[in-house]
Every structure is written in structure tokens, then in C-alpha cells.
Amino acid sequence: MGKCFSCIKIPPLSDSSSQGGVEKDKDEAMDVASVLNAQDNQNALTFVDSQSNGNSKVPGLQFSSEKRLFCPRIPPLGRTYSGESGGKRTREVSESKINALFDQYKDNVEENAIYAEGIEKLCSDLGVNPDDFKVLGFAWKLNAEQMCRFTREEFVNGLRNLKVDSVGGIRNKLPEIVAEVKTDPEKFKDLYRFTFRFGLDSETGQRILPLEMAICLWRLVFSQREPPILNRWLCFLDKHPLVRGIPRDTWNMFLNFTEAVGDDLGCYDDTEAWPSLFDDFVEYENDQMNQNISKEKDEMKEVCD
């Protein structure tokens, strides 16, 4: 039969030979280790000498003139910052700076509020008009309770959330706020609903916006996303003899109304649960359209005659 691996028998090692081999291996290993340690010590001395003699000429590496040994420098660890995310540095805002900034504009009598005069000064320092859309966006970010007043709590919490603590920081954030509400319909909807509450006089418990205030705020909040029917709606309100104020439901539903009716009110469905004021507006617009058509017919008739 031919030989196979299972047929090959390896004779067992004797106890004396195995022990002797182990001891011999240990001795050889110790000899090698002692030689390596001696070489390492010599190399280390040579490395130090080469540094002191200025032999290294390559940045990041130190060379020995005798052994050509090199040791790469360990690169310094990068700085870490609190709030670091995704490898990007985020600046830590200072609450003491925010409070100091608030104190620059606060009322002389009321320690914990900025009123109209202080807000005008802040707007001047920011380079914007008090009735600018950016100021409305800033008040939205502060979650201000009412117009012409920023409390210390609103100011500090708002700037902390915006991650700014200076006038320059606020100025740089204003365009970002505008871009945010222009590109995100949900954010604009939140701003729009905030605007109604912002216009109320919370100290008197006001629940309905006076018509004049509502018209001003509609023009302001829609200055970045103006619907096609806005001017006609405001003109209708200005001429309506019975409308003196705008309740919250009417204010909120008007945003949905502008999205539903299109440019010419052709998509308006009077069977839906719109506020009655919207029905009056559509009827008014239809009357205006019919009057215009009749007027155009009369003018054409006069020309033909």
C-alpha cells in the first residue's frame, strides 16, 4: 500500500531531550533579548546625541548620523470645543455677555424689560428699521409675548438658542431667519400664527386684533411670501363697514384660504367651513368683477356707436 499522512508515525520525544530543548530555547531567548536591549540603549543615546548636535534636517523626523534611525513625531491632538458636532467647531455663547447686552437696551426704570425706546436703539445698532420683517423674525425667535417689549428671560433664552451674544452675532443671524421662513412652509406657518399673538395687548387680555393692527401685521408678515389676493383682501376689509377686528380663527384660516383659492378665487368652494367673512369677500370680488365686465361692455358699446 502507498504511504499516506495517517501512516507516518513521529517517535515521541524523551523527557530529558524535551526539557533540555526548552532550557536551551530559554537561554537563547534571554541572550537575544539582552543583545536587543543593549542595541536599543545605544540607539537611544545616539538619537539624543544627534538631536543635540543638530543632525536632523527633515521636519518631523530626527536622524542619527551613525545608525540612520528615525522617530516620527506624534502629531498634536486637535483642540476640542464644548458643543462640538460632526467635526465642526461650535462657539460657546456667554450668558454674562447676553445679560450685559440686555442691560445696554433695558428700560431705565424696569430692570427686566426692553421697551420701545430700547428696541429702536437695538434696531439702529442692527441697521434695520423697527417695522422690518427681520425684526418680526427676531421677535419670533425670542418668542416675545407682545410688541414693543422684550423681557430679560425672552432675550437671554432667545439669544442662547440662536447661539449669539453680541450685536454683530444678531445681525448675522437675521438673514438666516428670513431664509428659514421663506424656504420652509411649516416654519412660516409657525411665524404667521405667532404674529397674531404678538400683536395682541396681553396686559389687557386682548383677544381680537384691531382691524388697523391686523392690516399692518398682514402686510408685514406677507412681505416675504405675498399671496396674489392680499391687496384685494385688505382693500375689502378697509371698506367693510362692520369689521372692527380680526379674531384668531379668521387670522389663522386666512393662510389656508390663500393657498386654497388660487390667484383669481376660482377654486373657492362655499360649501366648505370657511368663516363668513371669506364668503363676503368672495361675493364682493364677484360683484366687482361683474361691474367691471358691465363697464367694459358699456365702453365698447359707446365706441361702436
Rank of each mutant, 00 (worst) to 15 (best):
I246C: 03
I170H: 03
V181N: 04
Q288Y: 07
S34D: 14
P76H: 02
K26V: 15
S202A: 10
R244D: 12
I8P: 02
A260T: 12
D280I: 01
F236K: 01
P185I: 07
F236T: 01
W251Y: 11
W251C: 05
R160P: 01
E296K: 12
E120M: 04
G262D: 09
I229E: 14
I119D: 04
K297T: 05
L126I: 01
N256K: 07
S276F: 09
T250E: 14
W233D: 00
S56H: 04
L220H: 11
F254R: 13
G168C: 02
N161F: 11
D298C: 02
P241A: 15
F70G: 00
R244G: 13
D270P: 07
A116H: 12
I114F: 01
V243C: 15
P227R: 00
S85H: 06
K182Y: 01
F254P: 00
F70W: 05
G78V: 07
L101E: 06
E203K: 09
D264I: 03
Q42C: 01
I177Y: 07
V109W: 08
D125M: 02
L220K: 10
S166E: 06
R91T: 02
S124W: 07
G87Y: 03
S18G: 02
N256V: 06
T271N: 02
V109T: 05
F47M: 13
L217Y: 08
F155S: 02
L237A: 03
G60W: 07
E84P: 00
I215A: 08
G21M: 14
I8S: 01
Q51I: 11
I246V: 15
T271Y: 11
G168A: 01
A100I: 04
Y115H: 15
A116Y: 13
S124E: 11
N55G: 00
A273R: 14
F155R: 01
N231K: 14
R91W: 10
K26D: 08
P59T: 05
N112H: 12
K57P: 00
S223L: 10
G78M: 05
K189Y: 08
R68Y: 07
R91H: 08
E186G: 04
K24R: 11
V178P: 01
N286S: 08
R91F: 11
D132R: 04
C71A: 06
Y192G: 06
L136S: 03
M213I: 10
V35M: 12
M1G: 15
I74V: 14
R193V: 08
N172H: 05
G158Q: 01
A33C: 04
F150Y: 15
